[in-house]
Design a binder for these strands. Structure first.
Lengths: 150, 150
DNA sequence: TCCTAATACGTGTCTATACATTTAATATCA
DNA sequence: TGATATTAAATGTATAGACACGTATTAGGA
């Protein structure tokens, strides 16, 4: 796999900023593909998995659709339809919010929690296996990405 | 925007490897959204833009669909249909390859080249504006991402 | 109070991703 | 040569992303 230039068969980039954009897009695809391999047997898409983790983080407190949307990795996605898919699999519940009838309370079900726990054991080794970096380098990369977005 | 934890309203991560995966997914979304803003007036999706750049890099030598696929940022995408869309906009041409009739030769048109040049002037300032890093940090980030993928 | 604005959620449409399958053309080898 | 395998591209289907729009409900101000 090695360098980006080799991976996408491009000789060189005009400037390192341009290369960085392409590098992040490419690394994203690399990680998502690997993640997909783990999620597929569980019949979950990466974003469905993410929504379930958000709901688990609530520790039983219901959340609204828009709150889920705010916490999603992709702000332009469509939490409403994702919740629909998860409900069809009985991994989440939805209830009309009594205090504001525009809102809908979403909660993860026991079945959802069980699947997440199952997944976690599969995901544990995944990161270290797919990310070929030392702990120090991971920390550095994290802070650089945080700074990038300014 | 600042830290990832703040951006997606998560208190903390189990381990930095896990945070890194989420961080890359999130930064990807950040960059693609910004890129979309530039591409939209040109009626191009990010991946269509990428295919046009690949074809421009050929300097007039025709390429096959599978060669485009190999160089795409997302290996699982569908070059055939993307080429279709570009052909409908008259930005690429396709010809049956005489030496192997399974293959199709793809070339960027003059119209495609003109749009790319136009875009380039818009894209130039974009990177430095969106990426809040020094040149040194950009270099470091590039090499860390290359190493990540092993 | 009533009118208007803002909010929450859902829906519609187009494009792209992921992956299986199909069809045609070429390669390989007994 | 002929049967089989491999390859290139296209197609089919489900999910997701991007974005506009619609509808119901609540908020807020004249």
């Amino acid at each position: 796999m090695g360098s980006l230039e080799e991976a996408i068969k491009q000789k060189e980039f005009k400037d390192p900023y341009n290369k960085l954009v392409v590098n992040i897009l490419y690394t994203h695809s690399y990680l998502v593909s690997a993640q997909n391999g783990i999620l597929k047997p569980f019949d979950l898409s990466p974003e469905q998995y993410n929504v379930l983790r958000i709901l688990r983080g609530q520790n039983g407190v219901p959340t609204t659709v828009s709150s889920i949307q705010d916490r999603m990795l992709n702000k332009m996605s469509n939490a409403s339809r994702l919740v629909d898919k998860l409900k069809a699999k009985q991994l989440v519940e939805r209830r009309e919010c009594p205090s504001d009838r525009r809102q809908v309370d979403i909660m993860i079900t026991d079945k959802g929690l069980i699947i997440l726990n199952d997944l976690q054991t599969h995901m544990e080794g995944f990161n270290n296996q797919v990310i070929n970096l030392t702990g120090e380098e991971v920390g550095l990369l994290n802070s650089l990405l945080d700074k990038l977005r300014g």
